[in-house]
């Protein structure tokens, strides 16, 4: 099968690959480029485990064709911490015991990152709405919601 070239930045670094046409971004990231932080829980756009940020917007990488991402800036959960220092959301998830099995965590953190980028001081309802596309089967939603609210508060304190 003819390969198609795809080139984008992943967490700030240039990436280029030849892929089969029709390859999902999830597959390309995990199996070609080696960033396994997006998780494939359903491969049908319902669990949110594969969530990534493409040009500032939250996207499901299992429903996104890699070849449509040429020139895009892609962020994944593995690219949030800088120089070994956790991102405030990562810190808040840790402190709030917002992880159990951990499989939904990267997707949750992606959804929360986009929320706080657009809405730095969200209400609880806005947090719930922003996370509504991400399934946590361990049913730890309450600590996750608290973690996002805590991260928002610490961001606004730092900004003040």
């Amino acid at each position: 099968m003819a390969k198609v070239p795809v080139q984008f930045t992943l967490n700030g670094a240039e990436k280029a690959e030849f892929i089969d046409s029709g390859t999902t971004l999830l597959h390309a990231l995990r199996d070609k480029i080696g960033d396994t932080s997006p998780k494939g829980g359903c491969h049908q756009g319902t669990c949110g485990g594969c969530s990534v940020i493409i040009d500032g917007e939250l996207r499901l990488s299992c429903l996104t064709l890699a070849e449509t991402c040429n020139g895009a800036a892609i962020t994944t959960a593995s690219g949030l911490s800088e120089g070994g220092v956790l991102h405030p959301l990562q810190r808040a998830f840790l402190d709030a015991f917002a992880t159990q099995c951990g499989f939904c965590t990267p997707g949750m953190i992606m959804a929360a990152t986009v929320l706080l980028d657009h809405t730095p001081n969200p209400s609880r309802d806005e947090v719930v709405e922003a996370l509504s596309g991400n399934i946590c089967r361990c049913t730890g939603y309450e600590p996750i919601i608290q973690a996002v609210l805590t991260a928002a508060r610490s961001n606004s304190q730092n900004a003040a």
């Binding site: 995990r30 080696g34 396994t36 959960a77 959301l89 810190r91 992880t99 951990g102 499989f103």
Partner: peptide, 23 residues
């Protein structure tokens, strides 16, 4: 008393290796 979970840092940074995270 709360004690941090030892697996949480891997979970929040996407570094935890699940079986399918190998190629």
């Amino acid at each position: 008393q709360p004690r941090p979970r030892s697996d949480s840092p891997g979970h929040v940074t996407g570094k935890t290796a699940y079986f399918a995270d190998r190629n």
